[in-house]
Design a protein around this nucleic acid. Structure first.
Lengths: 269, 269
DNA sequence: GAAAGCGGTATGATAAATCATACAGGAAAC
DNA sequence: GTTTCCTGTATGATTTATCATACCGCTTTC
């Protein structure tokens, strides 16, 4: 059974805001299943809107299956049956650890083109002015549900080593290394952005929803950029995690990431 | 001179959406300074709204100083003088590396209380039902500009070791270790959320803006949770970064995070 | 069983956003 | 110079969101 598409977000400005806010509070763990929400009138006062608006927000949450409303009794947070499987990736190793979901994660190629990259990307890759890249947009799904939207940009000379059809099946890394590129190090940064109409449609959520943004630039031994990845993840279906150990002598204790003994490389992000 | 508060976000649903979308595209690096945007009519068509709405969005961007509009010529992305100083934290070591900003990062205590934590937090800390925690909400500022909103929750027995005034001045870690708590390891995960009215006000941005969410649970050697941190960062003023090296023999190459040689511990997150 | 609190429903007023359309003037291309 | 495309500006209609208020029926509590 294909689970219902999540977002039934209200249209209006305030209603939508309240909806997203409460949604984050529920999914984000500040409200536990079974907890009861304040009354609609109380919520209206808290958020500075009318009850009608609160109502609209709650309706959205209800059709999402996040809350349960009983006349006379009140509104409470439902058991999170809405978390069928979350994909957890290890930030330290870049390896997705599909916890309770060994359902095949598939990939779909959304776009494929060559052209001059936007300035910041060219700069990050260390490209000369006007140098061209191959650009591929891919969507990753787990159990048929999309969870990430990936845009990779590879300098054209390097990208010659593989074809469009290769991309649809093989992780980009494999392709690069097969091409003889010696991947040496990478630099990644995490941020948060809002879903644009394009990615919102691909990821099956509403425009303006929050997304995890991971930008990674991969370099070869010479320090030349060989890949620029811009990944967008649905927070409800994907988590970036890592474990740290507190190590070192008493006078120089510091944190050190734990590298999970990799059981062989699995897939790209 | 305290820089003008960033967000001049439009009110309306669609206008606001377009505003935030374009804003992310500019700040996110997909549009380089000097690039020119599509015409207002074109944008209207692209986003499926009227020109008036596009106009409202662009007005917001203009007052933010992100774009430049010239009658007859068009609209273009302005040089990002709007990035005065970004704080970059290393995910692998938890150490903020204040790059070009050694301006003192100060902290402000927003709330301080004791109580029963929300279910998920209690679970993460491994607390018994009804066990109480100390809860502190702090705001961190760099050069007077707030960039992060931190909520820490510490089991009450542990939290007895320090006072409210301690918290305002000393990093929580120091306090814990002074108390004799042996911090052993931590588990953190990164996500993305929207700004609630409360944090939006504290961080001086508009409700619904995207925020980086970092949740960290710190454990002692026995595996008991000693601290639950929920941090929210402004993406425009804060970045989470890390560097990875590609190591290992050819048959087992994998990624390993680079631990920067810490020049002593500086501050909490 | 009465009271208080809650969600479910309805209504009309008010405010706000959005739209469709039009025209003036600057800038650049031909 | 003329054409074309762009922003700047204006107007009035229209749709949408929000508000204030009221009443009903249900649940829980006292």
């Amino acid at each position: 059974m294909t689970q219902m598409v999540a977002s039934q977000a209200p249209d209006g400005s305030k209603a939508r805001r309240v909806y997203l806010l409460l949604r984050d509070e529920i999914l984000g763990g500040h409200l536990a299943p079974g907890d009861s929400l304040p009354g609609e009138l109380k919520l209206a006062e808290l958020h500075g809107v009318s009850r009608v608006t609160i109502r609209r927000a709650l309706e959205g949450l209800e059709t999402d299956g996040l809350i349960e409303r009983r006349a006379g009794s009140g509104t409470s947070v439902r058991a999170p049956g809405a978390q069928p499987g979350q994909i957890i990736a290890d930030l330290a190793t870049l390896m997705p650890q599909l916890r309770w979901m060994e359902e095949a994660t598939t990939a779909r190629l959304l776009a494929f083109s060559y052209g001059v990259p936007p300035g910041p990307v060219a700069e990050a890759l260390g490209l000369a002015e006007g140098a061209r890249v191959q650009r591929a947009v891919r969507l990753r799904l787990a159990g048929g549900l999309p969870f990430s939207h990936l845009t990779t940009q590879v300098p054209e000379p390097i990208a010659q080593g593989y074809s469009e059809s290769d991309l649809a099946t093989t992780p980009l890394f494999r392709l690069l290394e097969r091409r003889g590129v010696v991947v040496d190090h990478a630099r990644q940064s995490v941020s948060a952005v809002l879903a644009t109409p394009e990615v919102a449609e691909a990821l099956e959520l509403s425009v303006g929803a929050p997304l995890i943004s991971l930008t990674r630039v991969v370099y070869d031994a010479a320090g030349n950029g060989v890949e620029h990845l811009s990944a967008l993840y649905r927070p409800d279906r994907f988590r970036l995690e890592m474990t740290l150990n507190r190590v070192g002598a008493a006078d120089a204790r510091h944190w050190e990431p734990v590298v999970v003994a990799g059981s062989g490389e699995k897939a790209g992000p």
